[in-house]
Structure formats: C-alpha cells, structure tokens
Amino acid sequence: MIANERPLLELEGVKKSYPIKRKSLTFKKDYIHAVNGITLDIMARETLGVVGESGCGKSTLGRTILQLETLNEGSVKFKSQDVSKVSKAKKMQLKRDMQMIFQDPYASLDPRQKVGRALEEPLLIHTKKTKSERQTKVNQLLKEVDLTEEHAERYPHQFSGGQRQRIGIARALALDPQFIVCDEAVSALDVSVQAQVIQLFQSLQENHDLTYLFISHDLSVIRYISDRILVMYLGNMAELAPANVLYNYPKHPYTKTLLSAIPSFTVNERKERLKLKDTDEKNGPVTGCPFEPRCPMAKDHCKTLIPEWREINPGHFVACHEV
C-alpha cells in the first residue's frame, strides 16, 4: 500500500438502521442498528475482507456502499465524491464503477432471461454500443470467466452452480467497474468449485485493477483472499488489521473467539476454545461496549464506556478497553 495515495473509498461514520415493529399502540418505533458507525478507507486494488456472524451487518454494509440501501448517517465517498450527493449523471457513472456479486447464483439471475441477454443488459442501460459491439463484449466477458460463446444462448437453469456464479461475475464486469462488493460470493458453491471461483477473483483483480470488498463468514476463505480484514460485531467495528497480523496476533476478544472456533486441519486434536457467554440480549447495552454481554474478559467499565477505535500498531485498529 502506498501511504500517500488517496483511498478509493472513504467511509465516515456510516450508520444504517431499520425500524422494527412494536407491539404497543404508542406508535413509537424501535430501531435495530444493522450498521452502527463504520469508518474506514479502502485503497485501490486491495481486497478488504469483512467477517462476522450472521446478523452482524456485513451484508448491509456492502449494500449501503452501493446505495442499494440508503444510509441514515455518515457518508460514503468514492474517489472523494460523496455518493449520496452527486448529480444524476454522475450517479449513473457510479453505478458503473461499483458492482456487486451475490451469494446465491441461483437467485441472482433472472430465470426467464438467456445468459447472453443478461450480460447485454448492463450495456444497454449504460452505453450506446451497437448490437454487434455488444455481442463482441458479451463474448469477451464469457471468455473472461472461462465460459464459451455458445453459453450465451442458454437459460440459467441449464448451468451448474459454479457456472452460474461465473455468469454473475461476468455481468458485474460488463461495465468495467473499479470496485466490486462480493457478498458471500463463494459460500454457496461446492468445495471443489469454490477454489476455481476464488482463483478467478484473484486473476480478475490483477487483470482489471479491481478493488474488492469481500464479505464472508468463512474465516479460511477470508484469510486466503484478503489483504486486510475487518471484524464486525453487531454492526460495530471490532478489529481491523492486515490479514496475517489479524490471524497471528488477534487482539479483540471477539476475534480471538472466532479464530479459536475454526475447525483445525489437525487430525484428532481438539482445540482449546474460547467460550462466549450466552445472552438473550442480542442488541447489547446502549451505554457500553456492544460485545460486553458475551465477552469472556469483560470488566466493570466495559458496561458503561464505549471503547475507543484505536490504532495499536500501524494499520492495526481495535475497539476494546482491555487491549
């Protein structure tokens, strides 16, 4: 990473909350904070991994960056432009620059649309290319993801899961984006196919200078693909560090718990695991550290003080009082 380079994406205190229905008749709404103040920079050509348990807000974060969800507070800047405050024409350009790849390759393609047509669609929306130009681009895209021209004439249900995910990737590439959110993009694939797609992601990154926000719950995959990793807990940032640092020297108790839970590849050896405290209160206390109710190391002041987001080593950030 070059230090004085301007980041591609700058997130500043991003918050997204959803109203949840209340039983009472008071019309007062409760909010669930899916993303609760995320501040970080994403540099060009890096892969930032985001891990956390289900419901920690990692998917919502990706969607908020792409403006598929409107954020409640904070700002997202792409190349120093605030994405929520740009003109309509610029907005279309942003849609071209930022793309998304989804988890479920079965659900993310229109079952009624031939593959060639699905790949052509972004070109129809955003470019004035002629039919033959679009055709050429579609064929080029298919080749790029290791499919062939004949595949354009087929419907999604005629493909295997891995091939469908390749089509999803080709569609995301159609507009030559710079930034791609991969939301659990390999989680639904068969083991042997997963590795193919991971390698495809890596080679595409090299060939197209892509920047990835790679969301996954799979800690091994995240480690393999990411340059830096953000650990999220209930919408909050717990720890952020370069991949090797995070896995070798985890500081946040939550990160430590996650890592200790990974099944080891070691035969017949049970790992010593850190146990989280059980709690009914999933939303955590409003006053203190959000992780406090389940933290095995919690002290009294954790209940009342929100931990600061501190840089303990260059590039290694953590939000915990006890570090």
């Binding site: 590795a195 800690l219 091994s220 480690r223 991949a243 090797n244 896995y247 990974i262 590849f265």
Partner: peptide
C-alpha cells in the same frame, strides 16, 4: 480448500 494454518499454500481447484 484454504487451510487456515497454511495461508500461503496456493489453491489447486
């Protein structure tokens, strides 16, 4: 499969 203990091992799909 990526092996968490050997992150530098290249994948061979």
């Amino acid at each position: 499969v990526p092996d968490i203990n050997r992150p530098d091992r290249p994948l061979e799909p």
